[in-house]
């Protein structure tokens, strides 16, 4: 019951340090309760999404996805999600990457369901703003 009222935040990034920092940042956010699920690769995340209902009364779930990861890149994950229209309709999706390459910017246009592209490094203010805006 308790979990029902927490907003689900999912981070998919192969960099363990980022996952840790991200977790610390979320701990400092006190507007509403959050349930944080970090994954080091997209396959593990997909396994989780297949077996868990992440919908909650409190705001849409949010996915933060890195691009450059082993086994399945962020873009490949987008290809998988693209077909799950129910999921992308009720989920906010953000790309987080240190890439400034043109090809990654162009890729973004192929997935209109992505809310925004967040460039690493980013501060917790930006993260909090996103959490507040996309309530």
């Amino acid at each position: 019951m308790n979990q029902e009222n927490k907003r689900k935040i999912i981070l998919i990034d192969d960099n363990a340090i980022l996952r840790t920092i991200f977790g610390y940042m979320l701990q400092g956010f006190s507007d509403y309760p959050i349930e944080f699920h970090p994954f080091k690769n997209a396959l593990d995340a997909l396994d989780f999404l297949d077996t868990h209902d992440i919908s909650a009364s409190l705001g849409q779930p949010i996915l933060f996805v890195d691009i450059n990861m082993p086994f399945m890149t962020g873009w490949e994950l987008m290809d998988v999600l693209e077909d799950k229209s129910d999921f992308i309709n009720q989920t906010k999706i953000f790309i987080i990457s240190s890439s400034t390459s043109k090809s990654d910017q162009e890729q973004l246009e192929n997935y209109p369901f992505i809310s925004d592209f967040i460039l690493k490094p980013f501060g917790k203010e930006l993260l909090y703003e996103i959490l507040r805006q996309s309530c």
Partner: peptide
């Protein structure tokens, strides 16, 4: 690519850590 992913990635962690 290596520059973008393998250097920028870890590097970007550092300012975030320092900020915290």
């Amino acid at each position: 690519n290596i520059l973008a992913h393998n250097l920028k990635g870890p590097l970007s962690n550092m300012p975030m850590l320092i900020d915290e």
